[in-house]
Amino acid sequence: MKTTRLTLALGLSLLAANASAQGCMTAIKASGLNIGTSPDYPPYESLDTSNKVVGFDIDLMNAIGKQMGVKVNVIGQSFDGLIPALLAKKIDMIAAGMTITEERKKSVNFSLPYFSGQNVIVVRKENSATKTLAALGGKSIAVQIGSAQEKLAQGVKGGNVKSYNLYTDAALAVQTRQADSMIVARPVALQFLKTYPDLTITGMLNKIDTGLAIRKDCTDVQNRVNAAIIQIRKSGEMDTLVAKWFK
């Protein structure tokens, strides 16, 4: 009897889990794929002159939505609130140039990596001798709240971490000498250098993979997104988007 009850309980648990996962796609097909992003991280996402969210992530998500046969709705908010919003089911996915980390994997699933790169150190040109993490000891380091770069900066011995809601504010802080340096992904750094020519990249740091964050109970969505990414790569569309936004 105990074995029968245990088997029944396990069966019901699996059915419930499967129903939950299937329910994710059912809801998305009905109302669209709600994407959370923080539009202060060019070229991944930013606001254009008409305050429309644009960028690599947005184009990629529209391509993924087309592959999945669903409408994509973009919802902008602060970066540090994205994972809480995902877990609270206010959004279906995060597309925000988010670094895949082991810590984040504890609470969310990630798609296949869709872009790989490196973190870099950005300083004003007169401080170009600052080329390593160790050299940031005793200096202020601008980063975004809740970012993987914030965690990296917090590990610098003697570093003074200055966390900002927006990476655009972090870059401005370095430009205006309110911070000595900034740690950020290289493609984003290159965009900020176009805005602030007084800044320069001095050090190449750790390699990072970027992915789309999805709730753990939505494995069907994760599978559909991964299949779409693979198809977008095979078709050459991914290369086209990379060339548009990163070169």
Rank of each mutant, 00 (worst) to 15 (best):
M1R: 07
M1I: 12
T7D: 13
L10Y: 09
L10A: 12
L14H: 09
L14E: 08
L15H: 03
L15T: 14
A16K: 01
A17R: 10
A19S: 12
A19I: 07
S20Q: 15
A21Q: 05
G23M: 03
M25Q: 12
T26F: 10
A27W: 00
K29D: 05
G32P: 10
L33K: 00
I35T: 10
S38L: 06
S38I: 04
S38T: 05
P39N: 10
Y41F: 15
P43G: 07
S46V: 13
D48T: 09
D48R: 11
N51K: 07
K52F: 01
F56G: 02
F56N: 03
D57M: 10
D59S: 11
D59I: 04
N62H: 15
K66Q: 15
Q67T: 09
M68A: 06
K71G: 00
V74N: 02
I75Q: 12
I83C: 06
P84C: 11
P84W: 06
L86D: 08
A95R: 01
A96W: 04
E103N: 12
K105V: 04
F110H: 04
S111K: 08
P113S: 09
Y114C: 11
F115M: 11
E126K: 13
E126I: 11
A129S: 15
T130M: 14
K131M: 09
L136F: 06
L136I: 10
G138Q: 12
I141G: 06
I145T: 14
I145Q: 12
Q149F: 11
E150Y: 03
K151T: 14
L152K: 02
Q154W: 02
K157P: 00
K157S: 12
G159T: 07
V161K: 09
K162D: 01
Y164A: 09
Y167I: 14
T168M: 13
A170C: 04
L172E: 13
A173L: 05
A179E: 01
D180L: 13
S181A: 15
S181W: 05
S181G: 06
I183G: 04
I183L: 14
I183Q: 04
V184W: 02
A185R: 02
V188I: 13
Q191H: 12
L193E: 01
Y196R: 03
D198I: 08
L199W: 01
M204P: 00
L205Y: 09
L205Q: 04
D209T: 02
T210K: 08
A213Y: 03
A213T: 05
R215F: 07
C218H: 02
V225S: 09
N226L: 10
N226M: 11
A227P: 06
A227K: 14
Q231G: 01
I232A: 01
K234H: 12
K234F: 09
G236F: 13
E237T: 15
L241S: 07
L241T: 08
L241F: 08
K244Q: 14
